[in-house]
């Protein structure tokens, strides 16, 4: 089971660079890059901050994938 996200797609839609989003949510650009690649699962706080910037719900940005998914 893993968590995927639409950050890259949404960022492109908003025409934000990785650095733009990183500055808005208070992390480094490398963290945004790691999130987009799926190498890092964010904390609930960071995930909600990202959703807040995109003005979307958590479910719209992050999806739980895997065998045990309900």
């Amino acid at each position: 089971m893993h968590i995927s996200n639409r950050i890259r797609e949404l960022r492109a839609r908003f025409q934000w660079t990785q650095q733009d989003l990183a500055s808005k949510v208070g992390v480094t650009r490398q963290t945004i890059a790691a999130l987009e690649k799926g190498n890092y699962i964010p904390s609930l706080l960071l995930a909600m901050n990202i959703c807040l910037e995109f003005q979307m719900t958590v479910e719209e940005v992050f999806q739980l994938n895997g065998e045990d998914q309900q």
Partner: peptide, 8 residues
């Protein structure tokens, strides 16, 4: 560390 990922 500059953010939560670096702390992790």
């Amino acid at each position: 560390e500059r953010d939560e990922r670096e702390k992790a």
